[in-house]
């Protein structure tokens, strides 16, 4: 379970990104986070992985206070979380296979287990045939899927996606959303931020709306 209690984030220049956020997300839940750009969606997501640290308040994951975590403990927190970054953050100097291998190398997987897990992840996002290709040869949608494969390859309990459908056409976007739904169905807690209201029309999942750093009721 993820909980935010009176969480605020204020940047040194005085800008308030998060203003007294209170929320809780259950294990295995799928939640959408909406709001205009600048509403604080990214800051909220990043604070779950301790990429941003709140100025005040408490964030807990399974009872552990993330806001007070020592920097040496942060890597181990991040290994429990899969993150789909808004700007993908792919490495263009290595193959698709090696991009997805990175989280497993970091978590000390042995070579054979790692290779089979990489292929399983590639299969899930439909990129299995391109494992030897370089990321530069991929289209925007394919890069997004590569980023998703890297986020799930180490089978995290929590999956965070920041605007995963940002620049994609509607059919591709629905495709990606279906993928996240299927991860959620096997028990992964999924948190997705989007400003694309059309994606949320028929959803049965909870929608959290942010405006100017505050959560709307």
């Amino acid at each position: 379970m993820i909980t935010f209690k009176n969480v605020s984030k204020r940047y040194p220049n005085g800008y308030i990104a998060l203003n007294n956020i209170n929320l809780s997300i259950n294990v295995g839940e799928m939640v959408f986070l909406t709001g205009h750009s600048g509403a604080g969606k990214s800051t909220l997501l990043k604070s779950i992985a301790a990429i941003e640290r709140p100025t005040s308040g408490i964030i807990t994951i399974s009872g552990q206070n993330i806001a007070q975590l020592k920097s040496s403990a942060i890597p181990f927190l991040r290994r429990k979380i899969g993150i789909v970054f808004q700007d993908h953050k792919l490495l263009f100097d290595r193959s698709i296979f090696d991009n997805i291998l990175l989280p497993l190398q970091i978590s000390n997987f042995d070579t054979q287990t790692a290779a089979s897990r990489v292929r399983a992840a590639l299969d899930k996002v439909g990129l299995l045939k391109k494992e030897k290709a370089m990321p530069i040869t991929l289209s925007g949608g394919e890069r997004q899927r590569l980023c998703i494969a890297r986020a799930i390859v180490h089978r995290p309990a929590i999956l965070i996606a920041d605007e995963p459908t940002g620049n994609l056409d509607i059919a591709y976007a629905r495709d990606i959303m279906a993928m996240f739904t299927s991860f959620n169905q096997v028990g992964v807690t999924v948190i997705i931020s989007t400003h694309d209201a059309s994606l949320l029309e028929n959803t049965q999942h909870r929608i959290l709306s942010l405006a100017q750093g505050s959560l709307l009721a």
Binding site: P75, D93, L102
Partner: peptide, 16 residues
């Protein structure tokens, strides 16, 4: 720079 940043983001320790 990119490799280091991304590695940190996905849970690499400093020693790694």
């Amino acid at each position: 720079h990119d490799e280091i940043e991304i590695s940190k983001l996905i849970g690499a320790t400093d020693s790694f």
